[in-house]
């Protein structure tokens, strides 16, 4: 399948999402230089309101909230990118591998995928995380362990369809091995589909990281938007939530929405029927 990546960015929704992601990506990368303080340093009076010194004020123990926001972007995006990357790498290898090997390996793997798909990822990850109290990287591994089936199923279906095509038969006839065929002829065709699941997995991972941290299931040394919301909720009777809870919540929401916008734009480019073109609308529109 050929997709015009540029169209994803020129699509209004996709462009907005892409810019928001770039903004948070830059914030996460440059956090040590942008942040005025270390996220866990006690640098001011507790509950000071926003000022020139502390743009977003300070929290209950006098930590700088702006610095915490910036460093939390790191945690969130590290979890999102590594969970999505791992899940899709595993999906690619398992899905593509079993489709190419075929026969018994394929049947076993397909069955395993079917079974794994039945497990609700959100509950499985919660169960595992509640025991292991994971660091961001371990959390990404746990999430990937429950996310990989989607891409594995897609890659397998695509590979199976392509395997029967004439061009693959021709390449095999020249003597190309399965790994070469996969890398040179199947991977380029599978990529576009994989992009959509990568974005989807990243979105779910951001949400899960924040949600688990909100529940208190997190590494206490890693700053997290979810944990900021949880801590701020204990002080609703003060005004601190305005510069403490709301920015953290907005940060999670903008990242999640940005991922959905980019994902939606990708889907629209791949399947133009979904786009909102008034001239195509033909029924019941009176």
């Amino acid at each position: 399948m050929h997709i015009r990546y540029k169209a994803t960015i020129t699509n209004g929704a996709g462009r907005r999402g892409f810019f928001v992601l770039c903004f948070w990506g830059a914030a996460a990368l440059a956090a040590p230089w942008l942040a005025p303080h270390a996220p866990d340093a006690y640098v001011g009076k507790a509950f000071s309101s926003p000022s020139l010194q502390h743009w977003f004020g300070t929290n209950d123990v006098g930590q700088d909230i702006l610095s915490q926001l910036l460093f939390s972007a790191r945690t969130s995006l590290i979890v999102a990118l590594s969970a999505a990357g791992l899940a899709n790498a595993a999906g690619l290898v398992i899905g593509g591998g079993c489709a190419l090997l075929g026969d018994r390996a394929d049947r076993t793997a397909a069955r395993l995928i079917d079974i794994w798909l039945v497990i609700p990822p959100i509950l499985g990850a919660m169960l595992a995380a509640a025991y292991l109290r994971p660091s961001p990287v371990l959390l990404a591994v746990i999430l990937a362990a429950f996310f990989w089936t989607n891409s594995a199923r897609l890659v397998r279906a695509q590979t199976l369809a392509l395997k029967e095509s004439d061009k693959i038969a021709a390449v095999r006839a020249i003597g190309a091995g399965p790994v070469y065929v996969f890398r040179r002829h199947i991977l380029p065709e599978v990529w576009p589909v994989l992009w959509a699941t990568i974005i989807h997995d990243a979105r779910r991972a951001v949400f899960m990281e924040a949600g688990l941290a909100f529940l208190g299931i997190c590494d206490p040394t890693a700053p997290s938007w979810g944990r900021m919301i949880q801590q701020a909720l204990a002080f609703t009777y003060l005004d601190a939530w305005r510069w403490w809870l709301v920015p953290a919540g907005l940060a999670v929401s903008t990242v999640v929405v940005a991922f959905s916008l980019v994902g939606y734009a990708l889907e629209t480019v791949q399947n133009p029927r979904l786009a909102a073109h008034p001239e195509v609308s033909d029924a019941a529109d009176r």
């Binding site: 929704a13 979105r203 949400f207 924040a210 949600g211 909100f214 919540g249 999670v252 929401s253 999640v256 929405v257 991922f259 959905s260 916008l261 939606y264 909102a276 073109h277 008034p278 001239e279 195509v280 609308s281 029924a283 019941a284 529109d285």
Partner: peptide, 22 residues
């Protein structure tokens, strides 16, 4: 059913944003 209308665009954008908020 009213794809592309103002109502559709408005509710689609609004609900998509709402759906992203945890």
């Amino acid at each position: 059913a009213r794809r592309g209308s103002r109502f559709d665009n408005f509710s689609f954008t609004g609900l998509m944003a709402l759906g992203g908020i945890p």
